[in-house]
């Protein structure tokens, strides 16, 4: 697979330009923070009426990644739905589409803070997924090794002679990976801000997503 290849506690993985993580040995594709149903939730709460196309767009991209990798296991690393009501409120055609993608694959919904309970759509529902030598969970814990998490929506910036280029990014060090958000309607937290700087080791790298996956030293304030 075209992407940035690295090793986490002995497991070889590839950070894909799309923001998904590919683990060839397990035939496993991991995506984080899909936030499906975000526009519906905003509208329901009396917020802005956003264009209702983000679920379609997110699933389309996921479908492309599944086709390209031929993954047989899919891990959705939490905050897959913008809230549990958004999951129940997904239109029939989108539910069916997800069901079609699930056919012949083992599908794991890891809990996130936005979707902390069981979901109605098929697939296993877990608080976290240990798959030695790594563990998949939504939010990073300190002092652990071999952890793959999401939650923070990290993004990183490259300065190009006066203009800057900001993209969602993987943060990677020898202990952990923090994945970028995969959902279409997601913002990001700069890699150089406090929670991320504190979690990652000083020699961590950021892998910028986009048309190519590019590694840079993780941006920090100091």
């Amino acid at each position: 697979m075209e992407g940035y290849q690295f090793s986490l506690t002995g497991a070889t993985m590839v950070a894909l330009p799309s923001g998904a993580l590919w683990w060839a040995a397990q035939n496993l594709l991991c995506v984080s923070d899909l936030h499906l149903g975000k526009s519906e939730r905003m509208a329901r709460r009396g917020g802005a009426m956003l264009p209702p196309y983000e679920t379609t767009d997110t699933i389309l991209r996921l479908e492309a990644d599944l086709r390209a990798t031929g993954a047989t296991t899919v891990v959705c690393l939490g905050d897959s739905f913008d809230d549990l009501e958004a999951e129940r409120g997904l239109p029939e055609n989108e539910k069916l589409w997800l069901t079609r993608l699930q056919a012949g694959r083992s599908w794991i919904w890891v809990e996130g803070n936005h979707d902390p309970g069981p979901v109605e759509i098929a697939g296993s529902h877990l608080a976290e997924l240990p798959l030695p030598p790594v563990v998949f969970r939504h939010e990073a814990k300190t002092g652990v090794s071999g952890e793959i998490s999401g939650h923070y929506h990290p993004k990183a910036r490259l300065n190009l002679r006066g203009s800057s280029y900001v993209r969602p990014a993987f943060l990677i060090d020898i202990d952990r990976v923090i994945m970028p958000a995969y959902g279409t309607y997601t913002g990001g937290l700069h890699a150089h801000t406090a929670p991320l700087c504190d979690l990652m080791r000083p020699d961590a790298i950021a892998v910028i997503t986009g048309s190519k996956a590019l590694a840079i030293p993780m941006p920090r304030d100091k």
Partner: peptide, 17 residues
């Protein structure tokens, strides 16, 4: 900050759909 996202994303989405 991660809850808000840029208006460019909305623009790209509308352009597409």
């Amino acid at each position: 900050r991660q809850a808000t996202f840029s208006s460019d994303i909305l623009y790209d989405t509308l352009l597409k759909y």
